[in-house]
Write a protein that binds this DNA or RNA. Structure first.
Length: 415
RNA sequence: GGAGGGGUGGGUGAGUGGUUAAAGCCACCAGACUGUAAAUCUGGCGCCCUGACGGGCUUCGCAGGUUCGAAUCCUGCCCCCUCCA
């Protein structure tokens, strides 16, 4: 807990790699070299407790700075979460109960500390100061800014010019977040590039209140597994920290090759020089990108699980995806479920599409039909023989057989 | 209080009476190819019946109505946005 603050040897690792922008970089650099522990502020909204790799970019930054001896202050946005965050254009968000907030916070912290050092982290609950806030306090706070100031900020200006809604509470949120910075006397606040506005308000407010304005540290947006949009839970293109090893590894292997180097850059400690070499090798086609991607997947899986789990995930991938063999663990389905039907039709006479639905391999008969007609369904017999299921023609399925749909959906039939 | 614009399938976004289960794009699923769950190409992508051809049903904010026929027209309601006051 004691802190001898180190001056970073390789400054650009801190200030450039995995960084979108620092306001102001010069001041921040000077602070780092002053040898005084910095108070690093990071906030989170406990209505969304899931952390994915997109958040890890910033968490790794915090960790790097902690390792130099700086202090992280994590703000739990419990007060605002209980009100219900109205921001964004989405529909009404349900309010959270106190118990839910506690539960979410606990889950968040568990994930957070997979990357960030617990010993150099101080957790503060927002309700500690907002719980006693009065209307007079709110007015005092709001009186320091004007609507014009807010409307000139980029994201509000954009939305305003595009006729997109801006909720009044959205004006309040940056103020509250800014006030957090004042209370904890933050030196640097961290957030994604989309947080720039909020971070800057904090900077301004601190200045108004006679504090040294915080530096704003913004992380780049991590592109999700679809290779198109930013990683986010709602888009389903994310890799969660609590993802099982096989899923984590597999999802990373589904990244478009173009994303490999940025993932290395943002999410690993692989030296820049090595990354540059990989980039060169891939551009000159002297290496197979797959190998680098496997390395990446293995490395990240190791970080959030361990190397044994990563090894297992890798061999699972090689076995199931590359060799098209069966995985070790296959969910089982009782034969009786497959034949359970109004007429108790024997398996051999059941419509293959319906069979897939019964086995949980297709969501609807229509989907089952599509899969079968596309040649996606096969039966793997215990002796290794495989039979592709067709729409017509009998189906030979006995206990012990495995039904496979596509590359990675399986069910083993048991008596 | 007034004027105007808008609510379409997971997302975006066409469509203003039939040729629309509803373009295109993205995502997603499958096949081919590939030492990648990458890229590329091909196909699919509401539900139900059918081996198939084909047929049926439900869907374009909600509820009614007009019409042989409506996502498209009318009425009411709900919600969102902009401007004026």
């Amino acid at each position: 807990m004691t802190s001898q603050v180190q001056i970073p040897e390789n400054l650009s690792t801190i200030t450039r790699r995995g960084v979108s922008r620092i306001i102001s970089e010069a001041d921040f650099t000077a602070m780092l070299q002053r040898g005084k522990p910095l108070r690093l502020k990071m906030g989170f909204d406990p209505s969304r407790p899931d952390i994915h790799l997109g958040h890890v970019v910033g968490l790794r930054k915090l960790r790097q700075l902690q390792d130099l001896g700086h202090q992280v202050i994590l703000i739990v946005g419990d007060w605002t979460a209980q009100i219900g965050d109205p921001s964004g254009r989405s529909a009404t968000r349900t309010m959270l109960t106190h118990a839910e907030v506690l539960e979410n916070a606990e889950s968040y912290l568990r994930q957070f500390f997979k990357v960030v050092d617990r010993d150099r982290t101080q957790v503060e609950w927002q309700s500690q100061w907002f719980g006693e806030f009065t209307l007079a306090n709110v007015i005092e706070l709001t009186s320091r800014f004007t609507i014009n100031q807010f409307l000139h900020r980029e994201d509000f200006a954009n939305r305003y010019s595009q006729n997109q809604p801006i909720a009044i509470t959205e004006m309040l949120y940056p103020l509250m977040q800014a006030y957090d910075s004042v209370v904890i006397e933050s030196d640097v606040e961290f957030g994604g590039t989309d947080q720039m506005f909020n971070l800057l308000v904090g900077r301004e407010l601190q200045g108004m209140m006679g504090q040294t304005p915080q530096q704003c540290f913004m992380m780049p947006i991590l592109v999700g597994t679809d290779g198109v949009q930013k990683m986010s839970k709602s888009l389903g293109n994310y890799v969660a920290l609590e993802e099982p090893p096989e899923e984590m590894y597999g999802k990373l292997m589904s990244l478009p090759d173009e994303l490999i180097t940025s993932y290395y850059e943002y999410l690993t400690d692989v030296p820049d020089a090595d990354i540059a070499e990989m980039t060169h090798a891939m551009e000159s086609e002297t290496a197979n990108p797959m190998d680098f991607k496997k390395g990446l997947a293995h490395r990240i899986t190791t970080t959030f699980h361990d190397s044994d789990a990563a090894d297992a995930a890798q061999s699972h991938f090689e076995q199931v995806v590359q060799r098209r063999d069966l995985p070790d663990d296959i969910p089982e389905v009782s034969e009786s479920i497959l034949i359970r039907d109004h007429e108790m039709t024997p398996v051999s006479e059941r419509s293959p599409a319906r069979l897939l639905v019964a086995a949980g391999l297709a969501g609807s008969v229509a989907e089952g039909r599509r899969l079968v007609s596309q040649g996606a369904v096969e039966v793997v017999h215990p002796n290794g023989e495989r039979t592709t299921i067709r729409m017509r023609g009998g189906i030979e399925i006995k206990p012990g057989d495995v039904i496979r749909v596509g590359r990675r959906r399986f069910v083993r039939v048991v008596p």
